[in-house]
């Protein structure tokens, strides 16, 4: 598995299937409409704009709670993706959304702090998370979200998570 000569198709299928299982198994991620773009192990979360995401209809602006949820979802998926990468590459796990027992256990949020830098415009939003520190029990993750311009963040967040314990 994951050898230098493994076919490109097999590698991509394995990674895409794992990511799809992880994302599609969570009802709330589907309800918000969040998807993930993958380049190698790098993930970018995408939140397509929808009327139901509006928090201030006068401006209009995306709801602060949607922004917080988008950042938290991005952090949890990134953290889980990073944690299972090696097992996935070695073929030790093959998560399937239809088989709950095959899905990786998710980290639990301990706390989450969101910094609202500018109001969320009524258009698509993107986010990337960085695992700053991941120990056996605790992890610290930083997330950035932007819309039109990568350098102009509309929100950022830091969260602490309790990692799932095996057995």
């Amino acid at each position: 598995m994951a050898g230098r000569n493994e076919s490109l198709d097999a590698i991509k299928t394995r990674r895409n299937n794992t990511l799809n299982a992880l994302v599609s198994s969570v009802p709330y991620i589907r309800w918000l409409g969040i998807t993930f773009d993958r380049r190698g192990d790098e993930l970018t979360a995408v939140l397509p704009f929808d009327q139901k995401l509006i928090g201030n209809p006068m401006l209009p602006a995306i709801h602060g709670g949607v922004t917080a949820a988008f950042l938290e979802v991005t952090a949890i998926v990134e953290l889980t993706w990073t944690a299972i990468w090696e097992d996935m590459e070695q073929g030790r796990i093959a998560p399937d959304a239809a088989v709950p027992e095959s899905l990786p256990r998710l980290p639990k949020t301990i706390d989450f702090t969101v910094d609202y830098l500018r109001s969320g415009l009524p258009r698509d939003a993107y986010a990337r998370a960085r695992v700053v520190r991941s120990g056996r029990r605790y992890a610290s993750v930083h997330v950035e979200a932007w819309q039109d311009q990568r350098q102009k963040l509309f929100a950022q967040a830091t969260g602490h998570f309790l990692m799932p314990q095996d057995g």
Binding site: S25, V26, P27, Y28, R30, W31, L32, G55, H63, G64, G65, V66, A68, A69, F70, E72, V73, P100, L103, R105, L106, T109, F112, V114
Partner: peptide, 22 residues
Amino acid sequence: DLVGDPRSGVIHGGVISALMDT
């Protein structure tokens, strides 16, 4: 449809965030 952990049926933290923010 607001569940965050399919294994337990626990609602997603993001929903709590939206509720607290509102």
